[in-house]
Design a protein around this nucleic acid. Structure first.
Lengths: 338, 338
DNA sequence: CTGAAAGCGCTTACAG
DNA sequence: CTGAAAGCGCTTACAG
């Protein structure tokens, strides 16, 4: 195992000071172009690699951004992370990723790890049951930038990257209404979360606009899992009067529900129209193809990380109250057309 | 922004040496229990957090493990990573994750980043087209442990965590044969990769065992994408004689293919039986439910990272030639039963 | 069981 | 444009 090359080795061989080597390697403007070329060539020749720990220790920066997500293995989140990873990599930032597994408790533990890892900034999409901002206070106190994305904490006074969930909920619901549907069941997630609360608001807005009375019994708060999809289907067929449409806040749950409904001899979309959410690849490979809301997951990841990096570099000052809203879009396919 | 607390602050307030504080904080056995308690209490009181950069610089370790995967946003990979993240977190290791996007070129860039980030160890699942071991040599030279998982590089002489793809291919194919199927089309990925080459071997073994001649035209090497699933379906119906079964090396592709075949009035499984691969959640929510091979993704992630951590801690010496094979299992559902 | 001292490899304010 | 020197916050061999 060969000894690690340092700037002193380069300096020694070139009869030059370590300070100059350091500057040259960092492309400092004051250094002579020829000197830089010489130093870079020697660094290459010796197989030099910079020691980030020494550099970070000295600079008091970590170049590391923390990301906390509810789970890694969902289509939306892994796509968001793929987008973040790409940009972070290009910009020379490291990502520390951890998952809360939908539990505030685990999320609190994650924030502690992030804090002691001294991340330069933190990007968070909160768990189902998070109802406190307490665990983020240490970051605020130390002025470590904190940005929420997708599932945000309102009143946190932190920048947020979101889609317009109200509009998306409105689009989904009004599409169903325009198809002549009036008893629309809305299957959603924990209403503590903006993403679900806002979709519900959009659902209500559409009903109001078309003079359809809002019935609270038509909103089912669930965990949106595959199992839930099946249970929902069974519960639906046992209802006195069948709804004529479903607006389900997750494609995976919607697909599971549709499959079970079909097994129970319900015709989709003839008997019941369905609109999902996310534009998960699965939405295109089932029959009937699922009408859904396209969620710009990759873009969200890219924009969230870019905002953070720009802020850290001082290029962009994130206003505490600012929010970036991405465009989402109704993808009309067979399941929502009657 | 309050000043960061260091061991000197604790030492100063307690009238004790920084060396003792350092030892106490690291639970060094030589330190008096009372002294330790005192120091820990003071550290807690002052909100001390250890500076990993100083510590790593001094110890010449990074406590960081690099992971390179083909892509983040596939069910299998995000689940593998979820498993890794969980264990790494518990054991106090950081993960740097990057994706090759199925390109050797990007994979090479990723290895360079990992190398200059001085990861203590590297975990890799290679891209579709990787055909050189060259970019991993710097790790070998520096004796930085390198472990492959899922898509491994044979002859690399590195430890590998895999499933028995030959057996899985055999199980899938022989199941179809037992259902009376004899013209089984095998849709697979890049045959450079062990996962696909081995599944093909298993397919061939099963044919041989049941005295079915092997026909090379029945093996289609593809990218296993959703689009490919559609194209495959269209190509199948244009064939002079229809195959009576499909063994597709990815559930997502299989589901897409089934849906298109159904649109083309092919009855699944009556006309064509289908077996997929991975046990992706989507396999359970389509009609007919997909017969597939359960892939122990979470376990693979956990075992891969545990092997690495144990090796780094010196608990377990990874034999260069060793391989860990995880159990996979045929999940019999409707699509493969005729 | 505790301490003094050196050193890990950088960066940068200051000086020239 | 270049250099000398200090210091970032730890850990550990050595000494007692």
């Amino acid at each position: 195992m060969g000894k690690e090359i340092t700037i002193y080795d380069i300096a020694g061989q070139l009869q030059i000071s370590p300070a100059t080597v350091s500057r040259a390697l960092n492309d400092h403007p004051a250094i002579n172009v020829k000197t830089k070329a010489l130093i870079n060539a020697k660094a290459e020749e010796l197989g030099y690699r910079s020691n980030k720990f020494a550099s970070n220790l000295r600079k008091q920066k970590t170049n590391t951004i923390g990301v906390i997500v509810p789970r890694l293995n969902s289509y939306i989140m892994s796509t968001v992370l793929a987008g973040m990873e790409k940009i972070a990599n290009e910009e020379g930032f490291n990502l520390i990723i951890s998952q809360s597994l939908e539990s505030q408790k685990k999320e609190i533990a994650n924030t502690k790890t992030m804090f002691s890892s001294r991340v330069d900034g933190l990007l968070v999409s909160v768990a189902f049951d998070t109802d406190s901002f307490e665990h983020f206070q240490p970051f605020i106190k130390r002025k470590i930038p904190l940005i929420f994305f997708d599932r945000i904490l309102e009143n946190s006074n932190c920048p947020a990257i979101v889609i317009d969930n109200i509009k998306a909920g409105y689009d989904a619901t009004s599409h169903l209404i325009k198809q002549g549907r009036h008893t629309i069941l809305h299957i959603t997630g924990n209403l503590k979360r903006n993403v679900y609360a806002d979709r519900l608001k959009g659902y209500q807005q559409a009903l109001t606009e078309y003079n359809i009375p809002y019935n609270q019994d038509f909103v089912w708060e669930t965990d949106l899992s595959l199992e839930t999809g099946k249970e929902v289907a069974q519960r639906i067929v046992s209802l006195k009067t069948l709804p004529d449409a479903l607006f389900i806040a997750s494609d995976l749950c919607a697909v599971s529900c549709i499959t079970t409904l079909k097994e129970l001899n319900i015709n989709i979309p003839k008997d019941i129209s369905v609109v999902g959410f996310n534009n998960d690849p699965v939405s295109q490979v089932i029959a009937p193809k699922l009408t859904t809301i396209h969620y710009p997951a990759k873009e969200m990841g890219e924009i969230a990380i870019k905002s953070m990096i720009n802020h850290l570099k001082g290029n962009l000052d994130l206003d505490a109250a600012s929010a970036i809203t991405l465009h989402s879009e109704l993808m009309i396919r067979e399941s929502g057309i009657s």
